[in-house]
């Protein structure tokens, strides 16, 4: 099989798309996962706890 423009475009349009969507949805699911909420609340407030600062 020769690797030409068509091959690369086909790859980009299929596996490239699927891989990007999986990673992106992974990030969204991680961000919205209910049990992560408390962790995020703690992180958001952590920077305010130091007095300097």
């Amino acid at each position: 099989m020769t690797i030409d423009h068509e091959t690369l475009t086909a790859f980009a349009k299929t596996y490239g798309l699927i891989y990007m969507m999986i990673v992106f949805f992974g990030a969204v699911v991680y961000a919205l996962w209910p049990s992560n909420q408390s962790k995020f609340d703690r992180a958001a407030n952590s920077i305010l706890e130091q007095d300097e600062d």
């Binding site: 992106f24 609340d41 958001a44 920077i47 305010l48 600062d53």
Partner: peptide
Amino acid sequence: PKRAGRPIFSYRLSIISFWG
């Protein structure tokens, strides 16, 4: 957030917009 003395409005949104 430090200057305002308030945590970021939505930490979740900051993660999603990062990846976006």
